[in-house]
Design a protein around this nucleic acid. Structure first.
Lengths: 234, 234
DNA sequence: TCAGTCAACTTGTATATACATGTTAACCGA
DNA sequence: TCGGTTAACATGTATATACAAGTTGACTGA
């Protein structure tokens, strides 16, 4: 089954981006859209609620759905997005250096924290942008869920491998952003001349069956770090 | 009308926090809850989808709704939350110093950026925690929406004033987190000895009629900064 | 015993209806 | 002309029904 409300959502996103309905104007009413897409109002409302959650429209009772400035809000660094997807969205050309790819027992420091049973494998990758080494990604995956991969997979996209090759479904993530002092490793592997801080994004990523399968530290040079979030009240 | 799905949501949140349904167990099924709350399944589903969005449960088709570890995810710094609400949630005792409260024409630097018509008023507040000046909040409000307030309001909660006294409804916000070098003002007003970076959260906050009414820069000492986000894939 | 089937659950999607509630503009009467 | 009323229309909430699709465990038959 192709989910009707998702195809309608995608269609509306395309049309908003194409400027069919300019910013600050109203979308057609729910009843109008119900007729256009030959569906029920509830299905239209599901699609519109997705648009609202993702910052494309603001629904106002009695008036309609106002189109927001998508350009301002089209930089979603919140959410779960792989680095490959991110570079594609932002139109960045980037080079990934696989610094380390190893198999190990779960470090005791991570044991409690990560709560991964069995062994893990670890990937350390450097993201190079415009010839500068900006980001250091340190990933731990539980082998229970994700078998040891090849270097090629790590150079491309581990998430693509996990979702498309292994058929796993990523459910949710808990992310924490803090600022730390760089470690020796940071100074060795990144272009950190003159910087005395590093932004660290620590993520616990879970499958849809709620099992933890990944812990990641993404370490960013502070001047290149930017996090954008769209939030709604209540 | 009291929204039934919201009262059910609040009730379920309370019960999950109270441990009625332990972590990693299943909630009663949707049909079961439908009977318990004497409502329809769609209403239960609205409440459950809210729980899912806010990280309390993971819904799995064919199985049920799994209770997630609320303690891990109970630090929602994403979303739109006032500083007063935040300190209450985190059980922090904090002191607010109103450094400046002024009325001015919209600065030309903000004119384009903020797109506020007419004049603005500006509040500069220092947040003191454990005797240390940790956060510098610089707020700009359009007088068109928010009349010039008293010092007492700024010491308490501007948001409470806006929502409860003025009856305005906050709709959404666009937030950007970056790391900058501290300005002279930062060094003067905050306890920044030995720090060469500052974390800046820049927010554009809109009413539910999509009009911009506030621009804020919240400047945090890096060692005390922590941002936590719960995200779902897709 | 064991493998396979199937029934009885679960959540997900789609539709229809009714009424509540907020917005807007046309209309009407003083 | 002006102000209030009201009808038409917008979205929000609640309910009911039907079927799709994933999970689980019991049952059946070889």
């Amino acid at each position: 089954m192709q989910k009707k409300y998702l195809t309608i959502y995608d269609d509306l996103v395309d049309k908003i981006k194409a400027g069919i309905w300019p910013v600050n104007t109203l979308l057609p009413s729910e009843n109008d859209l119900t007729n256009r897409y030959e569906t029920s109002r509830e299905t239209i409302r599901k699609a519109l609620n997705l648009l609202s959650q993702n910052g494309y429209i603001q629904k106002v009772r009695g008036k309609g759905s106002i189109v927001l400035d998508a350009h301002k809000f089209s930089f979603p660094v919140s959410g779960i997005v792989s680095y490959k997807e991110l570079t594609k969205q932002l139109n960045i050309t980037s080079n990934t250096i696989v610094q380390e790819l190893s198999y190990m027992e779960t470090p005791s420091a991570l044991q409690e924290l990560v709560n991964i049973e069995g062994n893990v494998w670890r990937a350390v990758r450097i993201r190079e942008i415009d010839g500068e080494k900006i980001i250091l990604d340190k990933d731990y995956f539980s082998e229970m869920h994700v078998p040891f991969p090849t270097k090629e997979i790590c150079e491309d996209s581990i998430y693509q491998y996990i979702e498309e090759e292994l058929g796993l479904t990523i459910g949710f993530a808990q992310k924490e952003i803090v600022v730390e002092e760089p470690t020796k490793e940071d100074y060795e592997l990144l272009s950190l001349e003159g910087f005395s801080n590093i932004v660290v994004i620590k993520s616990h990523v879970y499958l849809d069956d709620t099992s933890l399968f990944q812990y990641t530290e993404s370490r960013h040079r502070p001047d290149k770090f930017r996090f954008i979030d769209f939030a709604r009240r209540i």
